[in-house]
C-alpha cells in the first residue's frame, strides 16, 4: 500500500518520537496482514524445529526420558523462539525479517528481555478464541495496530527500514524525473512553474509522476485529471491537446530543469 494515498496512511503515520537532538522521527506501524504472514512463517519454522529435535531426541534418549524431554522441548521452543530472536536480533524473528517487520519498544528503542517476554506471553490471550481473533480485533481498533501483548508490553511492530539503502539511492530527484521523459522542456512552462507554483504544488507534481506506475489505472487517470484541472486554472493554460497526465508530466520536466528551489 502506498502511504501517501489512502486514509490509513494519514492516521497510521502519527506516532513520533523526539530524539535528544530535537529531531522528530516517525515510527511506521506495520499492518495486520504482514504481521500475520510473518507469524505463519515463524510458526512453520517452530514446527520444523520441534519435529527435527524430537526425532533426534527420541533416538538419543531412553524412552522414559524421551517423552518428557520432547514435551518440554516443544513447549520451551514456542516461547524461547520468539523471545530469543526478538532480544538477540533486535526485534526480528526470521518470519518478521522475511516480511520486513521489526518489534521495537514504543519509545523507538530496542525492546528488553522483560518486554519481549510479556508481549509473547500475551499471545495466549491474543490467540483466543481462535487464530488470533481477539488480538486481531484489538489490533484493528488500535491506532498503531497493536495486539494486547504489545499494549501490555508497550511495544510496537514497525515496518523495517532494511531496504532503506535501495530507497535512498532512488531518492535522486532530478535524475529520476529526467529519465522518465525525453521530451524537450517547454521554456514557457518552465517559467510558469518557477514563478507561479508553490512548493507544495511542485511536490505534488513530482510525487504524482514518481508514483504513476504504482497507481491503480483508474485512480491514476482520476488523480492526473484532477491535478491537470487545477494547474490549467492556476497557470491559466489552454492546452486542450494535452491529457491531465501529459500536462503534469510536462510540468514535472520543467520543474526538474529548473531545480526544486525554495
Amino acid at each position: 500500500m502506498n502511504r501517501a494515498i489512502g486514509v490509513a496512511g494519514t492516521w497510521r503515520a502519527k506516532r513520533q518520537i523526539r530524539t535528544p537532538e530535537h529531531v522528530r522521527v516517525r515510527l511506521d506501524p506495520a499492518g495486520p496482514g504482514s504481521r500475520f504472514l510473518g507469524l505463519l512463517v515463524d510458526f512453520a519454522l517452530i514446527l520444523a524445529l520441534t519435529a527435527l529435535a524430537s526425532s533426534a531426541l527420541s533416538k538419543l534418549l531412553p524412552k522414559s526420558l524421551g517423552t518428557l524431554a520432547i514435551a518440554t522441548l516443544s513447549f520451551v521452543l514456542t516461547w524461547v523462539y520468539h523471545v530469543g530472536f526478538e532480544v538477540r536480533r533486535e526485534g526480528r524473528t526470521p518470519g518478521k525479517a522475511m516480511l520486513g517487520l521489526r518489534v521495537v519498544d514504543a519509545r523507538g528503542l530496542p525492546l528488553s528481555l522483560e518486554q519481549s517476554f510479556v508481549r509473547n506471553v500475551g499471545r495466549v490471550l491474543d490467540f483466543a478464541p481462535v487464530l488470533y481473533g481477539l488480538g486481531g480485533l484489538v489490533a484493528l481498533l488500535d491506532r498503531d495496530g497493536r495486539r494486547l501483548g504489545d499494549l501490555l508490553a508497550d511495544t510496537l511492530v514497525v515496518r523495517d527500514e532494511g531496504n532503506s539503502r535501495r530507497r535512498m539511492a532512488a531518492a535522486n530527484l532530478p535524475e529520476t524525473l529526467r529519465r522518465q521523459g525525453q521530451a524537450p522542456v517547454d521554456p514557457e512552462l518552465a517559467r510558469l512553474a518557477r514563478h507561479r507554483l508553490s512548493l507544495d504544488e511542485r511536490e505534488l507534481v513530482v510525487a504524482l509522476v514518481r508514483r504513476a506506475d504504482k497507481l491503480d489505472p483508474r485512480a491514476r487517470y482520476d488523480l492526473f485529471e484532477q491535478a491537470g484541472q487545477h494547474f490549467r486554472r492556476k497557470l491559466v493554460l489552454d492546452l486542450p491537446h494535452l491529457s491531465g497526465e501529459a500536462l503534469v508530466r510536462a510540468l514535472a520536466l520543467a520543474i526538474a530543469a529548473t531545480g526544486t528551489r525554495r
Binding site: R3, I17, V23, V25, L109, A171, E203, A207
Partner: peptide, 17 residues
C-alpha cells in the same frame, strides 16, 4: 514528499535505536 523523507527517517530511527 514521503518518498524522499521515509528512507532518511528510517535511517535516523535506526541510528537512534
Amino acid at each position: 514528499d514521503p518518498e524522499l523523507i521515509d528512507p532518511l527517517n528510517a535511517l535516523v530511527g535506526r541510528g537512534y535505536r
